[in-house]
Design a protein around this nucleic acid. Structure first.
Lengths: 187, 187
DNA sequence: ATTGTGATGACAGTCGCTGACATCAAATGT
DNA sequence: ACATTTGATGTCAGCGACTGTCATCACAAT
């Protein structure tokens, strides 16, 4: 056994999630999170930039996966369809619905966390727009397509969380895209 | 003359804008803002919930105007066109391009301020979705239309800020909507 | 055996933000 | 005219988020 317990980062994430659910985000101090993980407050801030970030560690991975998937989508398809193909590929991140529900419940209960989630989505949109530009899509079409794609994602994710039937994330993405197309066509 | 200088709120807003531009957001303390406005830190927090909010005082007014304009849009039009009619009506808020540019420069330079801007836009989207629902638009079309409308707004605003020609905000809204329709149609 | 190296702890300090109470000119009531 | 109330502000103490700096010490490298 090494000098320290392994996976300090993961322990901090888990401790944070537990405490945010047990007492609420506001009533939890960073020192408490660190203590539950067997670490100190100072170490928490070496792994996470702030108290919010500990809930959003996966967003880089998601962003990278989306960009990678977009790079492999058929270039013959319309930009919006390329983008939705990328969203489909991201469905692998959305399989544990219970965990997603718990996490989302914490986030929606606290504006500071919603803010962080929104800027992560904005970062995703910017990265997708950049990827579209690399494929030759001009502005403002690239940014608008990316924004539209993220809007589809947001709606689909919300439906997936609230879904009482057991529909797949991928299906909800497609339904939401169809809705968007109908809306834009004046439906 | 009354006991206090008038318009404490406005003085705080102006002092904050000045200092954020002069020294940067991070290098400005709330105590400094208050001092420049001839007040104390405690009073600052009586007018604004936090250091970020002082830059977003107008967002309620914008939101209310959008909802009101949507309520007066012809119900015969497609939802997305009703929404864009509302966005047109909001153009009155976007006439002083220099001020908007300065403010936006401060915001884009600081992630905390971007987060606040994003949650304000999310609030606008939620209010517009609610207004559409009151007009009989079902979910998820209402939310998706609202998100699409806000996306159009974001792109149009960005183009308005960057515009070197002197195009009107309203025109850019219409162009961006046309772009979105083309995108959704597979353009 | 010596010398890094890297993850962690300890500690002091700044600043955002809040609660509680005091102040005092102006408005209001009688 | 005088007393009372009100409302905007000030004062002060305190918590918690976050940072800079230096110390520690098992382990790795040489």
């Amino acid at each position: 056994m090494g000098r320290w317990q392994p996976d300090a980062r993961g322990r901090l994430q888990q401790a944070a999630m537990e405490l945010y659910r047990e007492r609420g985000y506001d009533q939890t101090t960073v020192a408490e999170i660190a203590a539950r993980a067997g670490l100190t407050e100072r170490t928490f801030f070496r792994y996470f930039a702030d108290k919010r970030e500990v809930l959003f560690a996966g967003s880089n991975v998601l962003e990278d996966a989306l960009v990678a998937a977009l790079a492999e989508a058929p270039e013959s398809a319309a930009p919006i369809d390329q983008l939705v193909a990328a969203l489909e590929a991201a469905a692998v991140f959305f399989t544990d619905r219970d965990y997603s529900r718990q996490r989302q419940a914490v986030i929606t209960a606290h504006p500071e966390l919603q803010e962080r989630e929104l800027i992560k989505l904005a970062s995703v949109a910017a990265a997708l727009a950049e990827a579209l530009r690399r494929r030759g899509v001009q502005e403002p079409a690239a940014s608008l397509t990316a924004e539209a794609g993220v809007a589809v994602f947001k709606i689909a994710f919300g439906r997936w969380i609230d879904d009482t039937a057991d529909r797949e994330f991928t299906d909800l993405i497609h339904e939401s895209l169809a809705d968007l197309k109908a809306i834009a066509a004046g439906g």
